[in-house]
Simulated assay, not measured.
Amino acid sequence: MPLPFLTADRAFDAGAEDIALPFDDHDSWRRPYRPGPWRVSAAATLLLLASFVLLAAMVISFAGSLSGATACFALAGVAIICALRLLRVGAWVSRHGVRRVGFLRTTTVPWDRTESVRTVQQPVRWLGFPRTVQGQALIVVRRGGEALPPLVTDHNADFLARAEAFERATDTIEAWGDEYRTG
């Protein structure tokens, strides 16, 4: 079974670093980097919690309390949905634009409505917590000067302690912007 989210860095690993847009199908939305270990660990922990809650739901249903079992099944379903959504968080690109997928909200900006996509030095949130540290962020500036919240930072769950992966991902997203932005 092919796992497309694992092929994001494969074009770079194969020595094709001169290719800015290593994907064949530019119409589908892609995350040009792999999910980071912090994000994957958090999702795995949620899935582990969900498995224990499902086991508890089974035991409760065998004991005869259907309302308790239903509540446990619902709680496990919410945990599974949260884990899957957590894995989708990040920056996604296609020929149509750039998409910032958050846990609760997704923002899509077409390439022709962007003025620039660039990496800047600024205070960034550490692993999404309120604490800020000095770091790098990839931002999209819309036409008219309005900037989106950072697409990715070097201190988020995907790139903490992975500076080379951050540089590769930002270079790739900037290349997509340079390729498809008009004007």
Rank of each mutant, 00 (worst) to 15 (best):
R10G: 06
Q134R: 07
R88I: 02
V109A: 06
D25L: 07
V101P: 02
S61P: 01
A76E: 09
A76D: 14
L160E: 07
R31H: 13
Q122Y: 03
L48A: 10
R39L: 15
F159Y: 01
V89G: 01
T7P: 00
S41H: 09
C72R: 02
W111F: 11
G90S: 01
P123D: 13
A157E: 03
P32N: 04
C72K: 01
V120K: 03
T153C: 11
T170P: 00
A42D: 04
A76T: 09
H155C: 11
V40R: 07
Y180W: 10
S94Q: 05
T132G: 04
L49A: 15
M58R: 07
L66S: 06
D25S: 02
T45A: 15
L54G: 03
R99A: 12
T182L: 10
G183D: 14
F166E: 00
D13Q: 01
F52L: 15
T119V: 15
R10D: 14
L55G: 05
D178I: 11
V140G: 05
L138S: 02
A50C: 06
V124D: 07
T45P: 02
C72V: 09
W92H: 05
I139W: 05
G177V: 07
D13E: 14
W92Y: 09
P37H: 06
E174L: 05
V120N: 05
W92P: 00
W29N: 04
